[in-house]
Design a binder for these strands. Structure first.
Length: 868
RNA sequence: GCCGGCGUGGUGAAAUGGCAGACACAAGGGACUUAAAAUCCCUUGGAGCGUAAGCUCCGUGCGGGUUCGAGUCCCGCCGCCGGCACCA
């Protein structure tokens, strides 16, 4: 690209202001107790989802959300808030480790390089971050506290009576290890051979790893788990008070998957064993014609008959070998094997066969079901395939006279899964489904055969990884038992290694550091590391007090930034803030993982009295995806990735910022357009030329048309309308329309001669959050304030008086169609407006010879004449 | 299959139930210039009528409904995008 003249010298003014901000620490927010802290101002905490500093640097998707929060941060500062607006790095993760495996270079070196690059890129965009609060999850001063929080979790249990986490010392049972919020379990896990590690359910997509798309198989392994299921109820209920998009709330709700139903116990015939099932349709109990256990269910070996053993064993092995992917792919074609055992239906003593089948999952409910093929699609399909009986017990309509059970029980022709009325169900007959559920549950409870219960899809969080580049667990093993390190032993640093490869056996890379693993005579360290989510579960808390060496966050700082309270006695939030992070902006990809995990950790810390709000993020906004110029998702392979650095070189950081916001609504998915960037750059150049003009020598000098004259009436209206609209639009995160309004302003003032200084002052003030470099530069050149930068000016106020016209245009409609426009005085009464409308010659034409049946007058807006 | 979200000019989009298309992009025309770039001005939803100022009709995915009035609210479809998916 040939060097062409810049429409305005952004290449000089942007680095100049960035250097000044850095030198002055212009956007540092002091904590309570620090010099410069102003306790009279309310707090505003505006947070970005911190990035993983990848080797490829920023793409234009990053600055979308970051610019939105930056505008809010700068605006709220001007509005008199103490603004917390920090940035940091989610720097543990697989790519750095894989780079280390390839090159032998320690992952911290590569990570540091990437972090430096990301920081430089963000600083070139001119974000108003408080860089003194920068955090890095791989910094020992940070992960020390990640490990510390893990210990809080490890040393707690969930007391079902209080419904909260309590120190493990309050547990009075015999086996505290069985109730800890962090525990070890031998469980079938998602093992990914290619990555050499296990993965959380959430990290497995369609049977393949989310990272790298490698196949994943089930394998039983000893793993650390976090008891997030204990919080299932609260994680759902407490969503209600949050200002989150309803879609995200629903996603979390569905992920947690609460379902109400009942547990029912079935006795195994000729055995002392019993099977407990979970069902949401206990009202169909009379229709249970067989049972199914998950193939891996521990009861299987106790009940299977000798002659069925070979078939059962064979089926179990085949199932175990199947990856999740195969299990999903084969979902359409159900398979199973009869165990040879029979169970007794607790309500009628009927003998029904017990099968195993992989359409029943070990991890959900009790891992066993009663099958009611007449009223469940899956059971229906299975029963048809294996010729099992189908018994109808719910009728879609109240059928009178067919109540007598035992008679006339022809198999139904199709499966009916809706609600209806119980039939062939003894005492339930005739009851609508909801009543039948209640009735049977109370009967089962009375007879000790079952009870009402609630089940969740959510599983406990598999929290260990066989990786090098993660937080080591602050745990040692002695005589087969785990115990916690003391706080004084933190941070526990990972060992130096020459080779970062996983062993491939499922043993973690840390196991290779034998000297490190040996803790003492007879005690060894845990060799797993924590997943990447660990560090991001609490980084927003660390920002509140990022350099605190004694605590994960100082109490006073936490109380102020999270609860808005400067009262040491209580955490009663400031009425201006609902508490928590006031605004959190990030992508939808974190809707269930990060946001659920972080809420869980926060609630544990809240229960333990470590933080003062029950929820971390009060308001959440998802920015939409930015597509490539071709309308496709940006990717290296498509070659449609836009690098913000290139945009800055060509058009400047302010143009990048403004274009990102002008593209469309923040939450919408929208394609990039370089032409669009150019259009916004043109707007900024017009702002520049509103103040500056080029002299004969080609130098930029203050425009002589700028004079200290009073703006005229029309100009005042534009000025005040702009202050009003830009302010309101920022509050609503409607940045694209705010920029439109500023364009209207500029279009109105470009022809003005003389050009009133006062008008320019207003424009620079409202433009500042969007284009901070340009507006500061012009502010300085116009010398509006010799000492203070524009960024610390208060937001201008508007006077509605200037928005009202003396005469207003009224639309006159006939039968809802616009037929004329009339001008009336602003104080005209309804009757006067109506009279004026009737007086219009055009209207007379349209209403000639017709009867005016009705007149609607909307003051200041329109008159509608209804004729017939 | 289930649950969300979205359908408006050539394009990105705007519109507390009250003039559909603000603001931009692209396109076309003009001014300035030796020329180009930059800049400035004008036209630009579709169809039709008029020499002209202008006027008329149609138009927000499709079909109904509520209302004086619907892009906006309600019901039923169609299409696209995202999430979940044997969850008993």
């Amino acid at each position: 690209m040939s060097e062409r003249r810049k429409p305005y010298p952004f290449d000089q003014i942007e680095p100049k202001w960035q250097a000044r901000w850095a030198a002055a620490q212009a956007f540092h927010a002091p904590n309570p107790g620090e010099p410069g802290f102003d306790a009279t101002r309310p707090k505003y905490y505006v947070l970005d989802m911190f990035p993983y500093p990848s080797g490829s640097g920023l793409h234009v998707g990053h600055p979308e959300g970051y610019t939105a929060t930056d505008i809010i941060a700068r605006y709220k500062r001007m509005r008199g808030f103490n603004v917390l607006h920090p940035m940091g790095w989610d720097a543990f993760g697989l790519p750095a480790e894989q780079h280390a495996i390839k090159t032998g270079e320690h992952p911290s070196i590569n990570t540091q390089r990437n972090v430096d690059n990301f920081r430089a890129q963000l600083q070139r965009i001119g974000f108003a971050y408080d860089w003194q609060r920068e955090v890095n999850t791989t910094d020992p001063g940070y992960y020390q506290w990640t490990q510390w929080i893990f210990l809080q979790i490890y040393n707690s249990w969930f007391n079902p009576r209080s419904q909260r986490a309590e120190p493990i010392t309050t547990y009075t049972g015999s086996d505290p290890d069985s109730v800890r919020l962090a525990y070890v379990a031998e469980a079938p896990v998602n093992w990914c051979p290619a990555l050499g590690t296990v993965l959380a359910n959430e990290e497995v997509i369609d049977g393949k790893s989310e990272v790298g798309d490698h196949p994943v198989e089930r394998r039983p392994m000893r793993q650390w788990m976090l008891r997030i299921t204990a919080y299932a109820e609260r994680l759902i209920d407490e969503l209600a008070g949050l200002d989150w998009p309803t879609g995200i709330k629903l996603l979390q709700k569905n992920w947690i998957g609460r379902s109400e139903g009942a547990e029912v116990h079935f006795q195994i015939a000729e055995s002392d064993q019993r099977i407990t099932v979970f069902t949401t349709r206990p009202d169909t109990l009379y229709g249970a014609t067989y049972m199914v256990l998950a193939p891996e269910h521990s009861l299987v070996e106790h009940i299977v008959t000798e002659e069925q053993w070979p078939a059962v064993r064979d089926y179990r092995e085949r199932t175990a070998r199947k990856s999740d992917l195969e299990r999903t792919e084969l979902a359409k074609d159900k398979s199973g094997v009869f165990t040879g055992a029979f169970a007794l239906n607790p309500v009628n003593g009927q003998r029904i066969p017990v099968w195993i089948a992989d359409y029943v999952l070990l991890g959900y409910g009790t891992g066993a079901i009663m099958a009611v093929p007449a009223h469940d699609e899956r059971d229906w399909e299975f029963a048809r395939k294996y010729g099992l009986p189908i018994r109808e017990v719910v009728s879609p309509t109240p059928t009178l006279g067919l109540g007598g059970s035992g008679v006339c029980e022809a198999e139904p022709l199709e499966c009916f899964t809706g609600d209806g009325y119980a039939i062939h169900s003894g005492p339930l007959d005739g009851l609508p489904t909801a009543d039948a559920k209640r009735e049977i549950a109370s009967r089962l409870t009375q007879d000790g055969l079952g009870r009402s219960t609630i089940t969740y899809k959510l599983r406990d969080w598999l929290f260990s990884r066989q990786r090098y580049w993660g937080e080591p667990f602050p745990i040692v093993w002695e005589n087969g038992r785990h115990r916690a390190l003391t706080e004084q032993e933190l941070p526990l640093n990972p060992p130096e290694l020459a080779d970062f490869k996983p062993s491939g056996t499922g043993e973690a890379p840390l196991a290779k550091a034998t000297a490190w693993v040996r803790y003492s005579e007879g005690a060894t360290r845990e060799t797993n590391t924590m997943p990447q989510w660990a560090g991001s579960c609490w980084y927003y808390l660390r920002y509140c007090d990022a350099r605190n060496g004694d605590r994960f966050v100082g109490e006073e700082a936490e109380r102020y930034w999270m609860a808005g309270s400067i009262n040491p006695q209580s955490a009663i939030p400031n009425p201006q803030s609902k508490g928590g992070v006031d605004l959190y902006v990030g992508g939808t990809e974190h809707a269930v993982l990060h946001l659920l995990y972080a809420r869980f950790w926060h609630k544990v810390l809240f229960d333990l009295g470590q933080v003062s709000t029950p929820e971390p993020f009060q308001r959440l906004v998802n920015q939409g995806l930015i597509l490539g110029e071709d309308g496709q998702k940006m990717s290296k392979s498509r070659g449609n990735v836009v690098n913000p650095d290139d945009v800055i070189v060509e058009y400047g950081a302010d143009a990048l910022r403004c274009y990102e916001m002008f593209m469309g609504p923040l939450e919408a998915t929208k394609p990039w357009s370089m032409n669009g960037v150019e259009g916004v750059a043109r707007f900024l150049a017009r702002v520049w030329r509103l103040v500056m003009e080029e002299n004969q020598a080609g130098e930029w000098v203050l425009s002589p048309v700028i004079q200290d004259v009073a703006p005229d009436k029309a100009q005042l209206k534009v000025m005040h309308a702009t202050i009003k609209k830009v302010g309101e639009d920022i509050e609503e995160l409607s940045f694209n329309t705010a920029i439109s309004q500023m364009m209207v302003f500029v279009n109105a003032f470009i022809p003005a001669n003389p050009r009133p200084r006062a008008a320019l002052r207003v424009l620079l003030q409202v433009l500042n959050p969007f284009a901070p470099h340009l507006s500061e530069e012009l502010w300085e050149r116009l010398a509006f304030d010799e000492t203070a930068p524009l960024a610390s000016e208060p937001w201008p106020t508007y006077d509605p008086v200037f928005l009202i016209e003396d005469e207003i245009e009224i639309v006159v409609q006939v039968n809802g169609k616009v037929r004329d426009k009339i001008i009336v005085k602003k104080e005209a009464t309804k009757d006067e407006v109506e009279a004026a409308a009737r007086n219009s010659a055009k209207i007379a034409e349209w209403t000639a010879g017709k009867e005016i049946k009705k007149v609607v007058v909307v003051p200041g807006k329109l008159v509608n004449l209804v004729v017939g």
